[in-house]
Design a protein around this nucleic acid. Sequence first.
DNA 1: TCTACCATGTAATCTGTTACATGATTGC
DNA 2: GCAATCATGTAACAGATTACATGGTAGA
Lengths: 180, 180
Amino acid sequence: MGVKNAILGLLHYEDMHGYRIKNHLERNFGHMWTVNFGQIYPALKTMLDEGLVTMNEIGQENAPARKLYSITPKGKVEFIRWLESAPEKNMVLRDPFLLRFTFFAFGDKQHALDLIAGQIKVYEKQREQRAGNAARWERGNVYVRLISELGVGFNELMLDWLKRAAVEIEAEGKTKVKAS
Amino acid sequence: MGVKNAILGLLHYEDMHGYRIKNHLERNFGHMWTVNFGQIYPALKTMLDEGLVTMNEIGQENAPARKLYSITPKGKVEFIRWLESAPEKNMVLRDPFLLRFTFFAFGDKQHALDLIAGQIKVYEKQREQRAGNAARWERGNVYVRLISELGVGFNELMLDWLKRAAVEIEAEGKTKVKAS
DNA sequence: TCTACCATGTAATCTGTTACATGATTGC
DNA sequence: GCAATCATGTAACAGATTACATGGTAGA
């Protein structure tokens, strides 16, 4: 189970609650693993039962209670066992936007341009969030720093590509008329 | 169902059999969608029942029979309906290599370097396959050409990053000694 | 007022993955 | 002789997604 190990990894750095784990993965490591709440909360519950983590509830005034999770020695042992084992599976990727994009020759050009504009906004927002949080994870750890940099690189690749795509798609009809 | 639409999209270009669809997606569009055989064959069967595709079996000498699928008008209508609808879901990404990488500060450095070397081979093989097949899909379709270019860009980003990562991880111990 | 964000969870459903089964060919 | 590639499929299991339920705060 990948979610379990992602959580155990994060808990090496600091205690966290479910909501924060999800957002943290999304904002900082969305280019290596994506998760949703439906996975996080049941996973934490199971891990608690297995003794991989401990939990203590922190009641807040004027806000819902947080359940702070900490990794246990048992959790650390299991994590290291997974880290050193390496029956590497393949990457899984499903990008509904890019899938639609691939076949937009059969659809409406303006719709394609609108989707691209929307996607540019998504990646620009993401870039800001990643840049903002990157600094805090860069202190003295090559691996996390490198992963952060890959995230930024990935983001920039997408933005450059999307902007170029918009220009080329817009220009497409015009050149065809000229050429023919 | 994403697989269904990916298949319908590909069948717009030419008739294909299951095995080829899988390899085609993997080699050309692995950066937008990944699939496995366990999805492809049942999906094709369902789509045949729904009348979205037709099938005719081509017996080959000295080789197992191929089941060639073609898209039907009904399939095209359903595909366009999906293409124009846009309740865009988020990208799904799970990269077991990058997940391990992120937390390799808690593992063995040499193991990390070995995994990186292995990953470089994977991406180099992929780059060759993509470069080889890219030309055939570039004829006159902006969208597919752009997606191809993104694939190459993605590949190059990963290779550059992996190579830099190897250098920086290897250098890490040494610089720390110097600095302290 | 309405949206966005914080915060937790469950259950049904939908998908995906793995392992198995079969069998031929080509290149090393 | 062995590994890889071609070619199809199924069934059991594991995992993910959605929709629902609840409720508070902050800012536009």
